[in-house]
Amino acid sequence: MSAVVVENLVKRYGENTAVAGVSLRIAEGEVFALLGPNGAGKTSLVEILEGHRRRTSGTVAVLGHDPEHGGRPFRERIGIVLQDGGLEEDLSVAEAVAYHASLYPRSRPTPEVIALVGLEEKARARVGTLSGGQMRRLELALGIVSDPDLIFLDEPTTGFDPAARRQAWELVRALRTFGKTIVLTTHYMDEAQHLADRIAVIARGRIVAEGTPTTLGDRHRAGAMVRFHLAAGVSPEGLPPPFAAAPTGWVEAPCGNPTAALHGLTAWATARGIELDGLSVVPPSLEDVYLRLVGEDATP
């Protein structure tokens, strides 16, 4: 059974098309990451799934509801962790969590949720006094206090220090053991790689690739970068393609068929009694794949 089904979704703001025909399915219990640069349309897409925005056309079913008309029965089953705040600063952490809990039919106990995000020591502190990272953890707490079936995490670790980031990842992993479906947006490739079962890369309002962290963009079939160093005085004459000598001595070439390329290269080297210093064969990183997929939209 699918938690989310989207077909031919389009969202336009006047002349500007933010989502240009997206179709996707997210299975129950799956951690699904939407990866894309800023302005790619991922926030628009997620906000349509959350019921915050109206779509221009296409069909959307989230937990069997049309988010635009789902109302309370729909909202009682989803948890939203927002990207940019929306917290009353004059409430205490415990009050904010208890308040959110009281809006839902089945909620986790407030102290349990506060402990889950590691804010026990701040339970009585005013929200306005929290650090950026603590604030994000509180938002995480508010997103899960209602024990939702589907959780939206919009860039959940933006602004976290590395330790808090690890902690948040642990929490997301803990959530998945409860069998929760999680839809995650992020522009961190490592985050998607660590957390997600499936990744969709979105650019210019379209999904340009979809797959598991290992198969995304045919990464496992994409060949590899072969690299080595030729010692000074060694003649590069007869070096088999695609390799070509460079002034630094380092030779580097992407190989669609690394097995055959290596065979040719090593045969050339052994026939001349040459040792290839620092020979390495590196498959493309997820980052390489991502940058290739999103093209010039990529933000560093």
């Binding site: 915050h52 909202r75 939203i80 927002l82 929306g86 917290l87 959110h100 809006l103 839902y104």
Partner: peptide, 13 residues
């Protein structure tokens, strides 16, 4: 501050 938007995401009518 986004408080209204957050509330729109909860079951509070």
């Amino acid at each position: 501050l986004g408080v209204l938007k957050r509330i729109r995401g909860t079951p509070l009518p």
